[in-house]
Amino acid sequence: MRRFGLIGRTLGHSASARYFAEKFRREGIAGCRYDLFELAAIEELPRLLERLPELCGFNVTIPYKQAVLPYLDAVSPEAARIGAVNCVRRDGTRLTGYNTDAEGVRASLDGLLRGERPARTLVCGTGGAAQAVRYVLEERGMAYDTVSRDPARGRYTYAALTEGTVAAARLVVNATPLGTAPRTDESPLLPYDALTAEHRLFDLVYNPPLTRFLEQGARRGARILNGEVMLHAQAEAAWRIWNGDPE
């Protein structure tokens, strides 16, 4: 049995296990399973690996995309540039980290923007997922500003955002977990009245499909996209990595 899975602190919202179960059934992939492994702290990872020698690879989610780095033997060049890992391949005792979030962000922006090139983007969040978003924006030469609760980590704090700043940023990305089930009443604290039909909103959250962040944009005519495209794209990229095609 080849085993795969997802590590994180709280995984009740995750659709990864269901996605891979459906993939295995649809594609006739036998002898594989995908499980969720909640870790109260990243320090529990070595014990998990010792307990499951059949674990061939795993995804990494909040809050361990950066914390996992010291446990890895190698990191792909792209993951090193991003500064975060969300996919780990295991070969014996050797762990190699990759970042497939970037591929998911690329696919999502392609579908949302449809060739448009907003002059300014706001990225809410400064964690591992946000780092992948910023990496892709930089790759495409798209200017952005970051928003954080911590004034030392973002260009803006949420309290400092004005309607003018949001109005000028025609692409707004939620790269925080705010709004994820079961806490669906949460959303980034933005001046939503500044949104228009010219805005594009991308939420990395996919559960629920329509977050409060996206609903606020849709109500004002903005084009919106949740994190489902990203989930599928990064999962397929991870599967290729685990099966010998890291490119």
Rank of each mutant, 00 (worst) to 15 (best):
L195E: 11
T176Y: 12
I82Q: 03
L36V: 11
R25T: 13
E78N: 06
G97N: 01
G125P: 09
V123H: 06
N207H: 07
A21P: 12
A21N: 12
H232V: 15
R51G: 12
A84P: 06
R9P: 05
P208F: 03
C32F: 09
A40M: 00
G104E: 06
I224A: 11
E215Q: 14
Y71C: 00
T162P: 14
Y135W: 13
R153I: 01
E38M: 07
L109S: 10
N243P: 06
F20M: 03
E22I: 00
V172L: 09
R155T: 15
P77K: 13
A40H: 05
A238W: 07
I224W: 08
A233D: 06
F4M: 01
K65G: 02
G83Q: 08
L49T: 03
I7C: 00
G127Y: 05
A21M: 05
G164R: 13
C87L: 00
A30S: 13
F4A: 01
D245I: 09
A175F: 08
N86L: 00
F213C: 10
G221A: 14
W239F: 03
S108A: 15
A194Y: 11
R149K: 14
W242G: 04
A233C: 10
P53W: 11
K65R: 09
Y192N: 13
D193T: 15
R51T: 07
G5E: 05
D35T: 08
A30N: 08
D193K: 15
L45I: 02
F4L: 04
N99L: 03
W239L: 01
G31A: 03
L190A: 13
R2S: 07
L112K: 13
K23M: 10
D73I: 02
G127I: 04
N174V: 04
P182C: 10
R25E: 15
G12N: 09
R140N: 12
T211W: 02
E54I: 07
R94Y: 05
L48P: 04
G28E: 05
P177M: 04
I62D: 01
R47T: 04
N174R: 07
F58L: 05
Y156C: 13
E228T: 11
C56M: 12
L214N: 07
I224G: 11
T121K: 04
L95K: 02
T93Q: 12
G154Y: 14
R183Q: 12
G221I: 15
A175S: 14
A129W: 00
T184Q: 04
G125Y: 02
T162S: 15
G111H: 14
A102H: 09
A30W: 05
P63D: 09
F202K: 08
T180G: 04
E43V: 06
G128Y: 03
P63N: 11
E186P: 10
A160N: 14
M142G: 10
R183G: 03
Y34M: 07
P151V: 06
N174H: 06
P246G: 06
N207E: 07
L112Y: 13
G127S: 09
D35I: 02
